[in-house]
């Protein structure tokens, strides 16, 4: 028993180091003075010059702004569609098209991105020929593509949260006289709100981060941040990308820290509640 505990624990520690070492090295070298990126220049480091360079890089700022807008819209639309799909799968029982919907919401999660990207572009081309819309590729087609693959993830999150809830809750509300829309607004929505929130965050991250599908459906003048980064790093390492990575890690870390504190707080409340219930049993 002990030996295996030791082995798996060692694997865990090494695995975590493996996961964090590259991120750590990027952060360290973002403060390096040398152009050579991975050779520490002790004389002039640490320095913030790559951060300064980054902040004056028009191209990156413009791309970041575009990515931000696309991610906001895509995540919001994906949450609406994914919630509908998740509710249909978890609550409507057997309906026509159920298998189809279930298949179409799980497939995009594992589908190789080059295939999704190619097929979406060919669709947009065909649509343009047939109905004249969308006009060319750009932010609109990128957003449509992102909504499509993001909603699959939201569906899974919402569906699994809903399956964890007793369907009798909604039936009870209806039994007490609430119409379906009422039931959704007063019971279902509050219950799945955490799932919707994490689905939105997930969708935002996926959209913000996507390169391959975006490359297919983007046009000239609609370069997203990942596209700009890719074109920069494809031919070697550039120090300002380290600075960019550090900023993004910082933002995520802050968000996680806040949510962890919040969860701790809620958990403490839960513990207190459990104690109350235990007292009630006496």
């Amino acid at each position: 028993m002990r030996a295996r505990g030791l082995f798996t624990r060692t694997a865990l520690v090494l695995g975590l180091m493996f996961l964090y070492l590259p991120i750590l090295s990027m952060i360290v070298f973002s403060f390096n003075n040398s152009r050579l990126v991975t050779v520490w220049d002790p004389a002039h480091s640490p320095t913030l010059k790559w951060y300064v360079a980054l902040m004056s890089n028009e191209q990156i700022l413009r791309a970041a702004w575009l990515s931000m807008r696309i991610a906001l819209i895509s995540a919001s639309a994906a949450v609406v569609l994914g919630t509908l799909a998740g509710m249909a799968l978890a609550r409507l029982g057997a309906f026509r098209g159920r298998m189809l919907l279930a298949g179409m919401t799980t497939a995009p999660i594992v589908m190789p991105e080059v295939i999704t990207g190619l097929s979406l572009l060919l669709l947009f081309v065909a649509m343009q020929q047939l109905i004249g819309w969308p006009k060319g590729v750009g932010a609109v087609t990128i957003t449509l593509a992102h909504i499509t693959f993001c909603m699959a993830y939201v569906t899974v999150v919402v569906q699994s949260r809903l399956s964890g809830f007793d369907e009798a809750l909604e039936e009870a509300a209806m039994d007490l006289g609430a119409r379906p829309l009422r039931v959704f607004l007063r019971i279902t929505l509050p219950l799945i709100l955490p799932a919707i929130a994490s689905g939105w965050l997930l969708a935002f991250t996926l959209s913000w981060d996507d390169l391959v599908i975006t490359q297919f459906v983007a046009g000239p003048g609609s370069s997203t941040l990942p596209m700009v980064i890719f074109s920069k790093v494809r031919f070697g390492v550039t120090p300002d990308v380290n600075a960019l990575a550090t900023i993004m890690v910082l933002i995520v870390a802050t968000g996680i820290a806040i949510s962890t504190v919040w969860m701790r707080y809620r958990q403490q409340r839960r513990v207190r509640d459990l104690q109350l219930a235990a007292l009630a049993n006496l």
Binding site: P22, M26, F29, T38, V39, D209, G236, N242, M248
Partner: peptide, 25 residues
């Protein structure tokens, strides 16, 4: 959380980080 955390930071940048780790210098 520690397992999932890197997933929330850019995939592209994390792959890029390996260039800096693996290249000749």
């Amino acid at each position: 959380m520690l397992i999932v955390l890197p997933f929330w930071t850019s995939f592209l940048l994390r792959v890029y980080a390996w260039i800096g780790l693996l290249k000749n210098n």
